[in-house]
Design a protein around this nucleic acid. Structure first.
Length: 690
DNA sequence: TTAGGGTTAG
């Protein structure tokens, strides 16, 4: 049947025509809808508010907001449905402010909104994260008696949850006279997304007693809470429940399951889920898996997943790249990181706030400060993530004044510093010996910026005082702090005690560290270092015995470098490398040269009862020196050497590398687990403060 | 006789 005959037949039957438009709207057949609309105009079909409402709704649902708006503007007579269709049209097409304005206009025109208009406009507030407007509309809904309506109540609970106001969401939810699966999910998901994982799971259990039909939304929200709460048993039960209800092959549920297992640390379960289940895996499925591998430090596996899903024709997105680049940053894998940066540009994702700040961080962590600053400059509208990254990079490189400058510029731009800003700022002060400034920022956090310091901030202050040699103040600070000091806090204090030779406080710190983290080898190692410095070999042996008895393994030190796009790993003991002989020769040659240049081995730092010659040999085979020797053999003259090390560089290596940079005329960049050191012509950027 | 709600990743 042609449109012409159709319109002839339908001449007086606008109900059927409306139904046709409704079908086109649901199946998003815009072109057919448009043709029929054109036919009606051509044949002079009489328009009516009823039919125009249908047309308006169809255009809005097909994403043609312009047409919808034009129809709405030109309507000779609008009714409640016209207004509501326009409000929801704006809301569905992400024009949230316009949805709210239209809702207000509706009042002005004397049209009183019903439950449909309320639920649409509350959704707009929710997506706009505007709790202030949402609250005003909530008040109106109470006034006109729609606040307890099922859809309005669910929307209100969702709006408050999405705006972070869980208490209000809970109040709305509790007052709802009847609840369905959507209302329950608004609340459960609200709890989960705001960090109230346990409450989310309690609500889920409570819901199971009620007569609620379980759907994929509820399962996704509960799985998300399980993963974040590390609720292994609950998670496994939920998995069984998913299978029992037949939702295992549902893509969003399957993704939520993958993500949950990744968060629980069960990477094998996560990847098995993807392999066995279904062909519907999408970019979220793979990105969850990549992220799981990145979080569990398995970068190679993360890269394998990336290659696999690219082969399957699934395109990566901003989530994928931010996860992969983060992995490169953690491993200081510059070559790989640069390649991802190039891909980000190709996919035009370089302005994504997460991706762009990860790139800044990646170059910084790979030692290329200039690249990092340049990457920051390329961001059109840097948000707090980007500023925090830049500040973190300066902190990592020991450039305290530059980090403070970044902080000041950030505040000048009216960006609100957050908890991470202060961790970076305090670290920057700590690594540059800016004690006065650091303490002042710590106080201003709460007094000026209203951010309550967390245990991480207290740990930073302990580090700040400790590095500056203010051990007594650090000890008092620890005793007064409102948190139990964590392993990081005690490690910082212990390292300071060792650096400044405070044996008594060192013992206290080591004992405390052992009690909060019994498997932490640092406590034992640093304690034995303190004894070694005092030449108390009996005590050194007793600490070693204790480690053996308690089965505490010392984290072996190793270093790695990129040469010819390949990562070469060097360990202090039992290492083998195809160029071992050459490296040994180069090391001997270097030792001679640096001794000539004034190198005095710090044999005190070797916690072993050996003769002095042996101690020098042990020192000179530390992993970073082998990596540097290999790089000097293999890398072209003039190319900076970038070495990464898993534990903090020792005092002796630090002075040796300074001299190596001088005698070899090479720039050497060393990243240890604490910060960056740039060695040029006999001196280090940390000014011997690390 | 039209118009309305909640999922899976930083």
């Amino acid at each position: 049947m042609t449109f012409r005959t159709l319109t002839k037949h339908l001449h007086k039957d606008s109900t059927t025509l409306a139904h046709v438009f409704q079908t086109y709207a649901q199946s998003k057949q815009l072109s057919k809808g448009k043709q029929l609309h054109a036919q009606l105009i051509t044949y002079g079909y009489p328009s009516s508010t009823y039919l125009t409402n249908h047309l308006l709704s169809m255009y809005a649902k097909c994403g043609q907001l312009g047409y919808a708006h034009k129809l709405f503007d030109e309507m000779p007579q609008r009714n409640l449905v016209s207004w509501t269709a326009m409000i929801s049209g704006f809301s569905q097409n992400s024009e949230f402010s316009k949805a709210i304005t239209t809702f207000c206009l509706m009042w002005g025109f004397g049209e009183s909104p019903n439950q449909f208009a309320f639920s649409s406009v509350i959704q707009a507030c929710s997506l706009l994260k505007s709790v202030r407007t949402g609250k005003q509309i909530h008040c109106l809904a109470v006034k006109v008696g729609f606040s307890h309506e099922l859809f309005v109540g669910s929307n209100l609970a969702d709006m408050y949850s999405k705006c972070g106001s869980v208490v209000e969401a809970c109040m709305v939810f509790e007052e709802m006279p009847s609840k369905d699966e959507v209302s329950w999910n608004s609340m459960i998901d609200g709890y989960a997304k705001n960090g109230y994982y346990e409450e989310a799971l309690v609500a889920f259990r409570k819901m199971l007693i009620e007569d609620v039909e379980i759907d994929q939304y509820l399962l996704c929200s509960a799985l998300c809470a399980c993963g974040s709460f590390k609720a292994c048993n609950f998670g496994r039960c939920l998995h069984a429940f998913v299978v029992k209800l037949g939702f295992e092959a549902h893509v969003s549920v399957s993704n939520a399951l993958t993500d949950m297992y990744c968060k629980l640390g069960g990477m094998d379960s996560g990847s098995r889920l993807l392999e066995i289940d279904f062909g519907g895996a999408n970019v979220i499925s793979y990105t969850s898996l990549i992220d799981g591998y990145v979080e569990s430090d398995q970068i190679e596996k993360a890269l394998t997943v990336f290659v696999k899903f690219k082969r399957q024709g699934i395109e990566p997105n901003e989530f994928t790249f931010s996860s992969l680049i983060k992995a490169c940053a953690n491993h200081a894998a510059l070559e790989q990181g640069s390649q991802f940066h190039a891909l980000v540009l190709k996919y035009k994702l370089d302005q994504d706030p997460f991706v762009s700040s990860t790139i800044v961080d990646m170059y910084g962590k790979c030692g290329l400060l200039d690249h990092s600053i340049q990457a920051f400059k390329m961001i059109f509208e840097a948000n707090e993530y980007a500023w925090n990254s830049l500040m973190g990079v300066f902190a990592h490189h020991g450039l305290g004044h530059e980090a403070i400058d970044v902080f000041n510029r950030m505040v000048d731009q009216n960006l609100k510093p957050n908890a991470v800003t202060f961790i970076n700022l305090l670290n920057a002060c700590s690594h540059s010996g800016l004690l006065k400034e650091g303490l002042s920022y710590f106080i201003s956090m709460e007094n000026v910026y209203g951010i309550k310091p967390r245990s991480e901030h207290y740990s930073c202050v302990i580090d700040l005082l400790g590095r500056a040699g203010r051990l007594e103040e650090a000890e008092i600070f620890i005793k007064k702090m409102p948190f139990e000091p964590n392993a990081y806090a005690w490690c910082s204090f212990l390292a300071a005690c060792r650096k400044y030779g405070d044996k008594e406080r060192g013992k206290l710190a080591a004992e405390s560290l052992k009690s909060v983290d019994p498997e932490n080898s640092g406590a034992h190692v640093l304690l034995s270092n303190i004894y070694a410095k005092e030449q108390q070999w009996e005590d050194v042996r007793s600490v070693r015995k204790m480690m053996k008895d308690e089965n505490v393994k010392k984290l072996p030190g190793y270093s790695w470098i990129d040469v010819d796009n390949k990562v070469h790993v060097f360990g202090a003991e039992d290492w083998c490398h195809p160029h071992k002989k050459e490296i040994d020769l180069k090391l001997d040659n270097l030792l001679g040269k640096i001794i000539e240049a004034g190198y005095v081995p710090d044999i005190e730092s070797i916690p072993l009862d050996l003769d002095d010659d042996m101690k020098v040999k042990v020192l000179h085979r530390h992993s970073e020196r082998m990596a540097i020797a290999y790089a000097l053999i293999r890398l072209p003259i003039g190319k900076p050497i970038i070495v990464k090390k898993n534990i903090r560089v020792c005092v002796d290596c630090h002075s040796a590398i300074k001299l190596i940079s001088k005698v070899e005329g090479r720039k050497i960049i060393l990243r240890d687990n604490s910060r960056y050191h740039h060695f040029i012509d006999g001196s280090c950027s940390c000014k011997d403060f690390w």
